[in-house]
Design a protein around this nucleic acid. Sequence first.
DNA 1: GTTAGCACTCGTGCTTGTTGAGTGCTAACA
DNA 2: TGTTAGCACTCAACAAGCACGAGTGCTAAC
Lengths: 342, 342
Amino acid sequence: MQLDERKYLILQAIIDDYIMTAMPVGSRTISRKSGVGYSPATIRNEMSDLEELGYLDQPHTSAGRVPSNKAYRLYVDHLMKTVKLTNDERERMHDHLVAKSKQVEGVIRSAAGVLSDATKYTSVIVAPKLGTLRIKHVQLVPVAERMALMVIVTNAGIVKDAVISIPEGMDADELYSISRMLTEKLADKPLEAVRQAFAELLRNAEYNRRLLGDTLQVIEKRLEAGGDASDVIVGGPANMLEYPEYSDVNKARNFLAVLESKDTLRQLLSRDGGMEISIRIGPENQLPALNDCSIVTASYRVGDHSTGTLGIIGPTRMNYNRVISVLEFMGRALSDVLSQYK
Amino acid sequence: MQLDERKYLILQAIIDDYIMTAMPVGSRTISRKSGVGYSPATIRNEMSDLEELGYLDQPHTSAGRVPSNKAYRLYVDHLMKTVKLTNDERERMHDHLVAKSKQVEGVIRSAAGVLSDATKYTSVIVAPKLGTLRIKHVQLVPVAERMALMVIVTNAGIVKDAVISIPEGMDADELYSISRMLTEKLADKPLEAVRQAFAELLRNAEYNRRLLGDTLQVIEKRLEAGGDASDVIVGGPANMLEYPEYSDVNKARNFLAVLESKDTLRQLLSRDGGMEISIRIGPENQLPALNDCSIVTASYRVGDHSTGTLGIIGPTRMNYNRVISVLEFMGRALSDVLSQYK
DNA sequence: GTTAGCACTCGTGCTTGTTGAGTGCTAACA
DNA sequence: TGTTAGCACTCAACAAGCACGAGTGCTAAC
């Protein structure tokens, strides 16, 4: 059995309705809709077919039908018509974003806020992989006896810091000149290329070997760790509780637990290919706690070589249309704001 | 009517039981407890008195009694006996904390995690007021045409950054020497004293007036704003959902909404006096969403002049004993870790 | 191919009855 | 005079029974 024009039409109507109401959809409801000129009985026959084909589920005999995950897949791949955001909305989102752009660390955080406000779902933003960022500046600051704070400024102004130990008796001036030297040697190199640069430095080491070795180690450990908790920002975590899918406290708790595990989120948001928008529906994203969720992701650029991910997590019956529009827009906006610092 | 020895004993037993079970406590239950040698009937008489005095509430006629907020107040002020943490626990917490102490920005975050894990409640940590921190280092880094990133390293290694605009044609070298000058002039001054220092600098300005003015403005704006979202860290937000008090999704949502508003949290955790531990029970902390919550706070030191706050938010029937012990211990531990960088 | 009609299913919400934990009161006891 | 046993009373929680109605599947007529 194949899907003909009418089955598509009816399936789409069902999904549209279910996305709005979260209630099983009956044949009468569809029949009454404008654009569908058939009686409930006819719709029923078609629905029966669609169920057999795996596009619809029936919670129980006397309830309406509910779209299956397979149906959502079809919907986002073929059925869905894209909607445009109003200029007003675009403007509001953009303004919110640039308002914070004076404080670099705040941009991503406020972007997450904008995303979750605009969609009413939960948003997640993952900062670019550390290794791909380019070093702008390295500074060692004495903070205690035999200890210094190493501050690395990268493009996009992202600042990473770590405490390293320094040799006995090394004073501020010495650290200052080492900082200058490091900045000179490492400027514009991506963090992941730092190992090579250091190897070279260490070979003709006029500077203290142990200090450099220590510094290198810190940088490498940071790279290995693959970023820390502050690299994954969640917006509107409580938004999910608005939806009947998560009106059960237990499910809600499990969902929130996933949001707390930044590592899981980072993995969850890792993107498959280069396509602009990626959609994962229900069990497609493995985690049982997210079985009733879909994750839609897009990416943003920082400079020429780094990309980060922004995404929306909502119920499988989310408003894909709108979510996609918002993500596309925000992806561009974020790229603009974060790439203005060359 | 006054509270005699026996009333205290019974009230304490009721509160202890209710803290464990969250179920209204009946006279039989108390009668069976070791240490209370009275029959249910006697207990009932006393309970009736305690209710009249406002220490107990009765959800409905045929239910047991529930401690009132007044009772909790009495409990934490007089009845409660303090418990000691086991050495094992102390060690575990301490280890977790110092494990992260190589990455300064992570210490507070991981402390919040330790707190919420150890208590099973929600934890909040507020960083010290920016103004009280002392400047260790100022660095201007060119990031774009006519734009620089200003990085301020303070004691405790806390790094603040902001983008400022710079005059046309100013190059990296020039920024470098200005940075050096600024560091020299501002080192060891608290951020709130920066205005004066700048006034002086501007008077005998051998350096670019506009740049300095801009820089000052950025610092002041930061101080005024009173800290941003990253200064308030929440641990284990979902922990509260474990308790029947918040098994209603609506209440849970309202609670989580409070946690998202960092400004509200900052206010909520602001501490009254200098006492070591402050406890606010139920409506004492204004917000309706937190009517069934208590907030217990302690403070930690950073250097000699700055203090931050760490706190636990849990149901009013929380285990005050344990929470207090944990907060006291962690307050000391955090102070130690964060004050090692002089 | 479409649709009206009808018997059937089954979750939801309401009522009713039962149970049991817990109370307050009274009277007897030490 | 303080304590306790006894007993009638209350009321939430749970279960059973019932009516309702939304929705289905099937059949037969158009």
